[in-house]
Nucleic acid binder design. Structure first.
Lengths: 246, 246
DNA sequence: AAGTGGTCTAGACCACCTT
DNA sequence: AGGTGGTCTAGACCACTTC
């Protein structure tokens, strides 16, 4: 006998439950409809609430359900399709850019970002906050990190977080400044992550919610001139990369 | 007052735990090292095992830990970097292709795939199974669906799943056949999903494990000629999309 | 056989939203 | 105030790997 077989032990209850619920969602419920509450569902299926919750968690991860504390569990609409492809020669903040600048900081970047940028430990960078909505729901937040040294001089005289409106204007200024440089290339990666407290708040989820983290490295003259870290809601988004066919 | 504030209630125990463990992982543990077992960790931190497990689950989702039943919990190495970019004019199975053909079926495709292909309900398609490893670990499995009608006639005389070796040869033949057609374009999407029982087995994980699902639509003469559904381990992989800079 | 993570239970209380 | 999902507990047993 080869490595075939498998012959699984028993299937766990929460998996069977997920299957049953999954089918029920397709046949007996409409998008947006609220399900019975967890205590009732658990009773109906004869399992403990924790077991029922395991199944619901999975269905939410798959984008089939949406759960909100204090409200209930509803059938989720199809995932929002979000285009994350970019012309290799396009800076963020260009004309057809769905992002909205929401703020700006001058701060110490996360260690991982500092490594990508190749900045000295302790070196401050300009960080532009952006927000992206879609279908009336929050879709993503982004931090775009740009070392001042790569910007060709200081952008503003303001030290750090001033008034909100001013920060937004400053953020836009940083993006405009970037447009001047010729972009050599753009490397992107996607990975699974979990929302920080701050991101979770802005995305309307609880901290730790699953997110797709898209990291962009903007290359100028062979060096990484800026790094964008965009955080997409993994439950409600599908990212598309249009290798445009004409 | 605007919509600011937040002022969070207390931070849940499992979140605090995650933070504490996260720092411990960086300072006190080396990659590959095994942690104390769950019962001991729970006791050490004065929480129930279920609470401890919530924190571990998150850390595993973030790719920081690796847990194996019967073995233990170890510190995970950095995620394997996987290139999923493709020349817009390249079919799968080309020269520099890291995939290995592992089988082939003639079967009814999943509903979602049938919709993308635009096949009639009940129409069978050729399905090529492929496997991709990296760093000595399983990385992804893929099902490539090709309607026979788009292949220019039947490929084999064999009806369905024959001997394993023959199926592999048949699968390769399907890929070779595709090379003949001029590819107009290639659309890709990435989303979060959970492993089916079959995929989980091949990826060395439990069913339901988080995966990144990459769906590829191969366009020929304005029509979708093939659809690939690749399933990557979300815990151990980071997908890169090289918008190649020269 | 022993040790590990995975599953499951039956409670309890809390945070949040709606009314 | 009442209802919802989120957190937490203290057990028990199971499936799997290793020795």
């Amino acid at each position: 006998m080869g490595t075939t077989h498998v012959e699984q032990g028993v299937e766990p209850k929460h998996r069977q439950l997920k299957t049953v619920l999954s089918e029920a969602l397709e046949t007996e419920f409409a998008v947006g409809q609220v399900l019975p509450n967890e205590r009732e569902l658990a009773a109906r299926f004869g399992v403990a609430r924790a077991t029922l919750r395991q199944a619901l968690e999975q269905l939410e991860l798959d984008g089939r359900l949406q759960r909100r504390r204090g409200v209930g569990t509803t059938v989720a609409p199809p995932r929002t399709v979000v285009d994350v492809s970019a012309s290799p020669d396009a800076w963020p903040g260009g004309p057809d850019d769905d992002w909205e600048v929401t703020g700006r900081m001058r701060a110490l970047p996360p260690l991982t970002v500092a490594r990508l940028l190749g900045t000295a430990p302790g070196e401050l960078v300009e960080t532009v906050h952006r927000y992206r909505g879609g279908d009336g729901r929050p879709v993503a937040v982004e931090l775009l990190h740009v070392p001042q040294s790569r910007l060709g001089g200081t952008v503003s005289t303001e030290p750090a977080g001033g008034a909100a409106a001013e920060d937004v204007e400053e953020g836009r200024r940083v993006l405009r400044r970037l447009q001047r440089f010729a972009l050599d290339g753009l490397d992107r990666s996607v990975e699974l992550g979990s929302a920080t407290d701050v991101d979770a708040g802005r995305l309307g989820r609880l901290p730790g919610a699953p997110v797709l983290v898209v990291t962009s490295q903007y290359v100028v003259a062979g060096k990484v001139a800026a790094v964008g870290v965009a955080t997409y809601r993994a439950d409600t988004c599908r990212l598309t990369i249009g290798d445009r066919h004409s």
